[in-house]
Design a protein around this nucleic acid. Sequence first.
DNA 1: CTGTTAGCGCTTTCAT
DNA 2: ATGAAAGCGCTAACAG
Lengths: 349, 349
Amino acid sequence: MESSADSKRVTLAQVAELAGVSVMTASYAYNRPERVSDRARSKVLDAAERLGYAGPDPSARSLRRGSTRTLGVVMGEHLSYAFEDPEAASFLAGIADVCADRGYGMTILPITGAADDGRRVTEAAVDGFVVWTTSDDDPVLSAVRAVKRPAVVHGGPEVAGLGLVGIDNRAAARAVGALAFAGAERPAVVSFPLSRDRISTITTGIDPADVLFPVTRERLEGYRLAAEDAGIAWRDVTVAVCARNDTAEAERLTAALLTAPEPPDAIAAMSDQQAAGVVHAVRAAGRAVPGDVAVTGWDDAAVAEQLGLTTVAQSLRDQGAACARAALGETPDAHAAEWSLVPRTSTRP
Amino acid sequence: MESSADSKRVTLAQVAELAGVSVMTASYAYNRPERVSDRARSKVLDAAERLGYAGPDPSARSLRRGSTRTLGVVMGEHLSYAFEDPEAASFLAGIADVCADRGYGMTILPITGAADDGRRVTEAAVDGFVVWTTSDDDPVLSAVRAVKRPAVVHGGPEVAGLGLVGIDNRAAARAVGALAFAGAERPAVVSFPLSRDRISTITTGIDPADVLFPVTRERLEGYRLAAEDAGIAWRDVTVAVCARNDTAEAERLTAALLTAPEPPDAIAAMSDQQAAGVVHAVRAAGRAVPGDVAVTGWDDAAVAEQLGLTTVAQSLRDQGAACARAALGETPDAHAAEWSLVPRTSTRP
DNA sequence: CTGTTAGCGCTTTCAT
DNA sequence: ATGAAAGCGCTAACAG
């Protein structure tokens, strides 16, 4: 039996009145049941039921408590991208695990790349932030800093006052690059975008230091070192820059690379999704992996095992969880995550 | 220049005082800049900067305004599942699109399947809810109903007082089932779970009416009609029930189906992920699609095109957006979404 | 354009 | 075990 679509919002005070107790007793009935007599408690619950009271108002409670019990997550310019990229999804799942366990909500902020992204951060009713890796110049970062709540950036950039969780991308790229480029004469890299414009291009001799995405920058630095370790000058390494982390685009760009007069004989990608596209393109061109072209990926996703991709393993899920814990103030802010090399059959032995 | 890690939280009142204006002028400086003189506004902003004021407190603002500008999303027992299932991800992306456009946050509630899921709903500071399809007996539904805020369920169940967005699963299943079962003698179905236990099993003669997940129930009803339309009794149709929507599990169960004395010659799945597993298993068993076994999927995901799967096309992204709009009170609550049949090469002509 | 008043709904004191 | 007072930080409503 429900008292219809009642006029206005029902308050705890009304419940208390109907129950014949003080507001505090009613409040305790919800928040500290053990501190209230069973009788009082059931009177309150009864009255609540009768009035159709849905429980203490969350906003009022947040204001009074000074905490929202919600964690904010900032996923970069294109929100929906977060849900399409399997690695981003793993990362979110890691955050979700921690939030679920702590009874926290998880608010995904509606970032769009527009000028008001900062406001979205400023206006978010959350206790802390996790920021998915972004560019050095992303204005969202200063907005996050400005609100002075605990915040952790995944991957980078490193921002004073914010935590940082991630692996040593440079070292990992150098290590996987060594496998990719072993015995190669014309190595190439399939890269994530270099700046927030997300321009897709094929080029050589790019200076990693100019790259605004720190994760991409560090990986390029690592690949450069790997190339040099293999006796190849960086200016001779072709870099195919994709606008997104996407199998189809990597496949297209690789197809273009392969039609060049001196096509690459080794391609290091920045994700397994991209590497999958690379493998498809290589095979579509009638060439063999790794015989004609060695290929490496990154992340050790399911597709890496399917294709036998040599790759870098890291747990984005664990890193998401680490970010969440740090943003909830449970652990120290900074955290170097684990990675490992997974050699498979897409590189030369 | 930043005034260090200030003692307590800075309030608008302090900013107003330092700026030498009233609190309301300070408030307007943030919320209605056009209603304040440039001079007053910059005095306020200056003072804010000097005090390290991060802008109006979101909780206080929510309380006062009576709105949180945040939408709640309930994704079923296993939160992280939401991020692993590509269809769920599309759906979330559709919600995100609308939230981003309206400047709303999107709070994913940390549902775990534990007893306190209801509290998570009750305590969420959100203006409305979108609920991803669940079972008839999911206690979260009554919690959502109880809070009396706008709420929309995707797919089902239909709940009094809550909106509903989705396609006619029964009709769609009957239509795609007609293609799957055309010319078949021993059709089978690869199904989503039948109840929240998510028990995996192979069986026959299940009564769709007993199934607690409405979407699954309606699709089974549709497949039954399709079988009967093709002159086959439902009790002769084997149903392989998967615990999750997952390629690997569908592949395992299909492999089992194929070792039976009278293996199926047509398999209708409930998702393209499952259908992909079915196709792999059929091929691994050395049989041809559709020659030996016809296969159909659902959703028209990327994998459906790759494999040439006959499937049901629907836009989960659009449906997510429709749910969000309805939960924000912009559109009528109920909404029958579009679907269409996509015949490809995995069924007999 | 600016200010005063009131109070959103709740929970933290601190009594009793 | 229960209650009274106070106020979290802000903005709607209404002056001036």
